[in-house]
């Protein structure tokens, strides 16, 4: 577990494929949102008297994933250290919980070996509305440090805003499927 501050922030490596993600614009955007969501927000920072706060991003178990926002070392306040991370997908949803299967990203697992029931109340309101079987999310557990040095354990679930389907893509797939069907050698 390594705590990353602005002083030793690693530049973003555009060629890396961190955390099993492709180095796409969507993935960079997701990572930005993901780590922002687990660090105290700007309004909380303002209450502490800092005019602006640049968030710092914790280094996860897989390196070289930092977006290009290099924070001002003078204004660094919050940090998050990841202890454990999973990628999961929803299997089923009941009235109070959803069940998900989880792949241990921290241990570089390639298959979902664990399963758990999560309370729906733990989700952001927007995520509760759009969750469905097959939805993919990240679950991270770690330590959050405030500017004053206080430390608390944090558990966050963030649903991935994967790229949406477009009409153009669906139509292209329909066309490609017709061609593919004609190429299959069926008795």
């Amino acid at each position: 577990m390594i705590e990353q501050t602005a002083a030793n922030l690693t530049p973003y490596n555009e060629t890396a494929s961190p955390l099993g993600l492709g180095s796409t614009t969507q993935d960079q955007g997701f990572l930005l949102k993901f780590y922002e969501s687990i660090v105290d927000d700007l309004s909380a920072a303002k209450r502490h008297g800092t005019p602006s706060v640049d968030t710092t991003y914790a280094k996860s178990s897989i390196p070289d994933i930092f977006p290009n926002k290099i924070p001002n070392p003078q204004e660094t306040r919050y940090s998050f250290s990841v202890l454990q991370e999973w990628e999961g997908y929803v299997v089923s949803i009941s009235t109070e919980t959803f069940t998900a299967r989880l792949t241990d990203v921290t241990r570089n697992c390639t298959i979902e070996e664990e399963e758990a029931d999560f309370p729906l109340t733990d989700l952001e309101d927007a995520d509760r509305l759009r969750i469905s079987p097959g939805s993919i999310f990240r679950w991270v557990i770690g330590y959050r440090r405030s500017p004053g040095g206080t430390k608390d354990r944090s558990s966050r679930i963030v649903f991935r805003n994967l790229p949406a389907w477009t009409t153009k893509e669906i139509e292209k797939n329909r066309h490609d499927a017709t061609e593919w069907a004609s190429q299959l050698n069926v008795e």
Binding site: G20, T103, L162, P163, I170
Partner: peptide
């Protein structure tokens, strides 16, 4: 082609983990 279209729609969900 209906099923193959389904495969193409879902094959690339932009995550290598799941």
């Amino acid at each position: 082609s209906e099923f193959l279209s389904h495969v193409l729609n879902y094959q690339n969900i932009m995550t290598k983990t799941t």
